[in-house]
């Protein structure tokens, strides 16, 4: 194991963490403020990828495609909130889980009907398709560095918005006690729609940025959705800060575990046992992490809700 590989895997893990944060931020706000378990959040990630791929094909430019797709997914998110989700706020978590499960099935089929069955791919523009020398012999793909940069920028923007603006104040207040916020005369309905739209845009952005790497396919949202749920549960529901920290932790542990766990196991186990246990254990690692966090802190690391 050389340390260049280690550095690369660390960056990969960090990049996955950033991506997870974009999805988890919206998810944790929607769950924290509206008390809505939204399984369909992964569908917004998927729609973002498809929107960006389509617009990029129309305009022949990846950047233009993303810029057009962002307002489109914001609008789509707000429409979904008004049409389908509004009636669910007052319902039990069970109803919400089921109804948004229905939304997932709907959207997965919808993209298969609208777009080609095997999905869409976007080629990266030439200027993003290279690798950058980071010093000390480590090179890393330009595009992945861009993802990390965009993600950090969005995280910073989100932090400033939540911590410094009036809207952010309402969001924080909503996460700790939404009934009181409503009683104080804030238009909760409008706030909910806006927050949901913003969350949709962030998840969509994550999908757009992954589209050139993974290509947009039906069902691409589910795997990442479950990871995002793991993140917000570890981070504490409603806490953007918790979501950020947990995203990075989960991204790093998942990626590093897959790369290095079998090597570590070789040190303590015989070869064939280590080879058998390595992949199994590394794919279970983050779930084990989540279970142990919940065992010791049933409210997650940074609980935002007061009661």
């Amino acid at each position: 194991m050389n340390w260049i590989f280690l550095a690369e895997q660390f960056l990969n893990g960090f990049q996955l963490g950033i991506l997870l944060f974009l999805i988890a931020a919206g998810l944790t706000l929607v769950l924290g403020i509206m008390d809505l378990v939204n399984l369909a959040h992964g569908s917004l990630y998927m729609l973002g990828a498809f929107f960006a791929a389509t617009f990029a094909q129309w305009t022949d430019s990846f950047v233009l495609g993303v810029l057009l797709a962002l307002p489109a997914i914001l609008a789509a998110g707000m429409v979904i909130e008004v049409v389908a989700l509004r009636t669910l706020y007052a319902r039990s978590h069970l109803d919400q889980v089921l109804a948004t499960f229905g939304l997932i099935l709907f959207f997965n089929s919808l993209v298969q009907l609208v777009w080609p069955l095997d999905g869409l791919t976007i080629p990266l523009p030439a200027y993003l398709d290279g690798a950058v020398e980071l010093g000390l012999g480590v090179t890393y793909p330009t595009y992945r560095i861009l993802i990390i940069a965009v993600g950090l920028l969005v995280a910073l923007g989100l932090y400033l918005m939540v911590a410094k603006t009036r809207l952010g104040m309402l969001i924080r207040a909503g996460a700790s006690n939404r009934v009181m916020v409503g009683a104080l005369g804030v238009d909760i309905k409008w706030l909910f729609t806006l927050v949901f739209g913003l969350g949709a845009m962030l998840a969509g952005l994550a999908g757009m940025m992954m589209a050139p790497i993974l290509s947009a396919t039906s069902g691409m949202g589910e795997q990442i959705l479950i990871l995002a749920f793991v993140v917000i549960v570890i981070g504490g529901i409603g806490s953007v800060r918790g979501a950020f920290i947990a995203s990075i932790i989960v991204g790093l542990i998942d990626t590093m575990g897959r790369s290095f766990l079998d090597v570590l196991l070789l040190a303590v186990l015989p070869v064939n046992a280590a080879e058998a246990a390595g992949p199994a254990l590394s794919s279970m690692l983050i779930y084990i992490l989540m279970a142990s966090v919940l065992f010791f802190k049933p409210q997650g690391l940074f609980p935002a809700q007061s009661g």
Partner: peptide, 28 residues
């Protein structure tokens, strides 16, 4: 372990355990 939690956390932790077993099957 799961019954120590309530509400959304219970939903999510049962899901997490099922995923663990699922991945155990995938990697077997």
């Amino acid at each position: 372990i799961c019954l120590r939690t309530k509400g959304v956390y219970f939903i999510m932790i049962t899901l997490a355990f099922a995923q663990m077993i699922y991945f155990l099957g995938v990697s077997a």
